[in-house]
Every structure is written in structure tokens, then in C-alpha cells.
């Protein structure tokens, strides 16, 4: 494990870097806000990865958060109201789905999540009179703490909001993983029977992590909804879930910073690739993931901690 101070200073540097980049290039604010929002959702996947479980349907919680915003924004257009409600709705959905899926492990866990997310996707697409189908719902910019901000101010506010939430959830997940509940997650990965012998219910441990991860997915989705300001069912599609897993692998599952490194890296690669090769951006993304898997299995975070660790021989890495 890395020292706490080093991780905190990297996080601080990262946050400063995000703000500096957003200041230097106005268009990046949007991209970075989306990246941070996805990072928050991927934090949830990280929790489940600790238990050795991969979900291929996590985008359903992203969509739940985004659609909560889309449905409620006309009647309650206040970001500080929409965010907790979106978190609550996703958390509740996570609880209902979780009660069912935490009975399964490994491929069954992943596939069941995928199936449930696709059911949700179809509902969003087919309940046409409610959701406007694939055309999606426009979201008017909500007020933020009672202020209705215009144009660039709103984009700044969303970025800062996302940054604050990202840091907050990062700290929370770090604390959670260090707590007995978090340690028990690792127990599920190594040997579940031992947990049960200790009198800990593996299902409950996994359910708690699942609900927390759903909640973070909802928060990420709410930010995506308020930033993109147009919500479509594509958010719940399996490719969107795949993207989240991609980010988790790219960033590395070692620490709470991984998802954010992965998300920012992913969005920047995509934007740069799309800007330079409009037709081949998918191939470039694929190549990047392949390189990471082949040469840096610990992801971006693994690379950074490796570099830092090498600089300080003799100290426990």
C-alpha cells in the first residue's frame, strides 16, 4: 500500500490539474465533468472488484440517476435537491436488484447484472410516452444552491460540484475499504467460506457494497444528466456498462484514485482520438486498453505507484 500522504498529494495535484486544464481550455470543462462523474460511478465498480465480482450492467444506475434528474428537473430544478434524490432512487434500485444478484458469484453475477440493465434499457426505450424513447429527454439547467447560473458559470459550477463529490466519495470509499466491511469484501474474493466461519454473512457484506456502488452510480448519472442536459436510453445500454469496466481496468483497481485516473484518461484518449481520426477512434481506444492489459496490468494507478515506489527503495511500497 502507498503511504497516505503520497496518495493525498497526488489527489490534490490531480484536482489542481483538472482545474488548470479547465481554465486553459474552456471546452475541456465539459469533458472533465463527465470524466469525474464516470469516475464516481466506477468507484462503485471498484468496491465490487474488491470482492472479485465484475458487473457488466452498472450503467443501469448511471441511467437511473440521469433519468431521475430528467423527470424531476421540470418540477424541482435544484441541483442540491436532484443529487440526493437521484442517489436515493439509484440506491433503492440497487437494493432491490442487489437482494437478488448477491446470491450469485463471478460470471453469473456479471451476466445477471447485464440482463437486468438491458431490461431497464428496453423499458426506457419502449415506454415511449413516458421517456420519449431513443430521442431522449431534454434537461433544463437546474438552479445550483438557489442561483440560476448562465452559460459558462453553470459549466464551471458543475465541474466544481463534480470535483467536490469525487473527492468526497474517494475519501468515503477509502475509509470503507479500510473498515471491517471493506476488509470482508477482500475476504469474499479469497475464500468466502472463511468469512462465514467467522460469523460474517458474505451476502450482507456484498449487498452493502452493492447498494453503495449503486448509489454512487446514481450520483455519477445525475451529474452526467445535468451536464449533458440531454438524457437518452443509451446511458443504460451494455456498451455504456462496458465503458465503465474499461475505465476501471484502465485506471487500476488498486486505490480510490484509480477510477478517476482511468476516467480522465479514457475521456481524453477518446476526445483526442476522435479529433485526430474521426473514423478510427474505436481502434485507438481498443489499442490503448490492449497495451494497458499487456504491459500495465495494474492500470494507470499501478504505473504511478510503481514509479513512485521505485524512487524510494528501502521503504515499504
Amino acid at each position: 500500500m502507498m503511504r497516505r500522504g503520497a496518495e493525498a498529494s497526488i489527489a490534490l495535484l490531480g484536482a489542481a490539474g483538472v482545474l488548470a486544464a479547465a481554465w486553459a481550455a474552456p471546452w475541456l470543462k465539459f469533458v472533465l465533468t463527465i470524466a469525474l462523474a464516470k469516475g464516481i460511478a466506477v468507484l462503485g465498480i471498484l468496491l465490487l472488484l474488491r470482492a472479485g465480482q465484475v458487473t457488466f450492467g452498472h450503467a443501469v444506475y448511471l441511467a437511473a440517476g440521469a433519468y431521475t434528474v430528467a423527470f424531476l428537473a421540470p418540477s424541482a430544478g435544484e441541483a442540491f435537491l436532484l443529487l440526493p434524490v437521484a442517489a436515493l432512487v439509484s440506491g433503492l434500485l440497487g437494493l432491490v436488484v442487489g437482494l437478488f444478484v448477491v446470491r450469485y458469484r463471478d460470471i453469473f453475477f456479471g451476466m445477471l447484472n447485464l440482463a437486468i440493465s438491458m431490461v431497464f434499457y428496453s423499458l426506457l426505450e419502449k415506454l415511449y410516452s413516458l421517456t420519449r424513447g431513443t430521442d431522449g429527454i431534454r434537461v433544463e439547467p437546474p438552479r445550483i444552491a438557489g442561483f440560476s447560473l448562465a452559460l459558462e458559470d453553470y459549466v464551471w459550477a458543475m465541474l466544481i460540484l463534480a470535483l467536490v463529490l469525487a473527492v468526497g466519495f474517494g475519501v468515503l470509499v477509502r475509509a470503507y475499504l479500510a473498515s471491517p466491511m471493506g476488509q470482508a469484501l477482500a475476504g469474499i474474493k479469497t475464500r468466502e467460506t472463511r468469512l462465514e466461519f467467522m460469523g460474517v454473512s458474505a451476502r450482507r457484506v456484498l449487498l452493502a457494497a452493492y447498494v453503495l456502488s449503486a448509489l454512487m452510480g446514481g450520483v455519477g448519472g445525475a451529474i452526467v444528466g445535468m451536464t449533458t442536459r440531454h438524457v437518452t436510453p443509451l446511458l443504460a445500454y451494455w456498451t455504456s456498462s462496458g465503458e465503465l469496466v474499461f475505465i476501471a481496468i484502465l485506471g487500476g483497481a488498486g486505490a480510490a484514485l484509480g477510477p478517476f485516473l482511468g476516467a480522465v484518461g479514457y475521456e481524453l484518449v477518446r476526445v483526442y482520438a476522435a479529433a485526430s481520426f474521426a473514423e478510427a477512434w474505436q481502434a485507438i481506444l481498443g489499442a490503448v486498453l490492449l497495451l494497458v492489459i499487456l504491459f500495465a496490468p495494474g492500470g494507470l494507478w499501478g504505473m504511478i505507484s510503481g514509479l513512485l515506489g521505485r524512487g524510494r527503495p528501502g521503504r515499504p511500497a
Partner: peptide
């Protein structure tokens, strides 16, 4: 093809 979020980001860029 990647969807709304990508198009909106590219529009801004």
C-alpha cells in the same frame, strides 16, 4: 455513433 454525450463534448470542442 458514440451518442449524445460525445456529440455534445465534440460540439464544445
Amino acid at each position: 455513433a458514440p451518442g449524445t454525450e460525445h456529440v455534445v463534448a465534440e460540439y464544445r470542442r
